[in-house]
Amino acid sequence: MITLADIKTSSTIVEDLDWPFDFSLERAEDDIDWIQLKPTVPFTVVAGEGTGVAFLAYGIGKLETLPLLHATSEGQSGRVATNLTEWLAILMAVPYWRDLLHFSDQGDLSEMRRTAVFMEKEYQEDYPDVPDARRRIMEVLPIPMLEDPIQVLHANVHATDCVVIAEDGYEYGSLFNKFKSSDNPSWR
């Protein structure tokens, strides 16, 4: 199991996770008063993103063994990993995981796989610093290789057992979105 302490031993790893992977440990200290979970369970904010998003470890036990919930600023939430180590493995394998969920046709695994083909190409062109950052992280942290990271992400989001509740009582929706890869005109 990889711990937050393991990650924090290297400022380079912390910086690489922040950019280009947008998993900022420093943003874990942002305002969290807006976060309420259903069912009510203890949680710790592990990281954030540039858009005010939070990654929460929730439940009872050692932080590194708890599932991770992703809460967006657009009113969506869902489990993305069973623990921190699995999340890092997903993040290293499919750094475009948000797009896989966005273009998932409400959680269709085959649609997520189609989206991945397009996103691989886009990430190679638009995020040239990902391979070097990934290499540096993988050299320091014992992150396992997942046989099928897209399926693991898919299964986790489907297994969501805890959601965020807004201050007005609105229950956040699923991380899966209605769009398909064919909805993006540049992917045809």
Rank of each mutant, 00 (worst) to 15 (best):
T82E: 09
T82I: 06
T82C: 13
T82S: 11
N83I: 11
N83S: 14
L84V: 08
L84D: 09
L84Q: 12
L84N: 04
T85F: 00
T85D: 04
E86S: 06
E86R: 08
E86N: 10
E86V: 07
W87G: 11
W87I: 04
W87D: 03
W87M: 06
L88I: 12
L88S: 06
A89H: 00
A89M: 05
I90Q: 04
I90N: 02
I90H: 04
I90E: 02
L91D: 02
L91C: 07
M92G: 02
M92P: 00
M92A: 07
A93E: 09
V94N: 10
V94T: 09
P95I: 11
P95V: 13
P95E: 13
Y96G: 12
Y96K: 14
Y96F: 11
W97C: 13
W97A: 13
R98V: 14
R98F: 09
R98I: 10
D99R: 03
L100K: 13
L100C: 13
L100S: 10
L101T: 05
L101K: 08
H102Q: 09
H102D: 14
H102N: 13
F103A: 14
S104G: 04
S104V: 08
S104Y: 00
S104A: 08
D105H: 07
D105V: 15
D105I: 14
D105R: 14
D105G: 07
Q106S: 15
Q106D: 08
Q106G: 12
Q106P: 03
G107R: 00
G107D: 09
D108V: 14
D108G: 13
D108T: 15
D108K: 03
L109R: 08
L109W: 11
L109V: 10
S110F: 03
E111R: 01
E111K: 01
E111S: 09
E111Y: 00
M112F: 06
R113I: 07
R113A: 05
R114T: 08
R114C: 06
T115E: 01
T115G: 01
A116D: 05
A116S: 12
A116N: 08
V117F: 03
F118N: 10
F118K: 07
M119S: 08
M119Q: 07
M119A: 14
M119L: 06
E120Y: 03
E120G: 10
E120D: 12
E120S: 15
K121G: 13
K121F: 04
K121L: 14
K121W: 00
K121H: 05
E122I: 13
E122K: 06
E122Y: 12
E122G: 10
Y123L: 05
Y123S: 07
Y123E: 04
Q124C: 07
Q124F: 02
D126S: 09
D126Q: 05
Y127F: 08
Y127M: 06
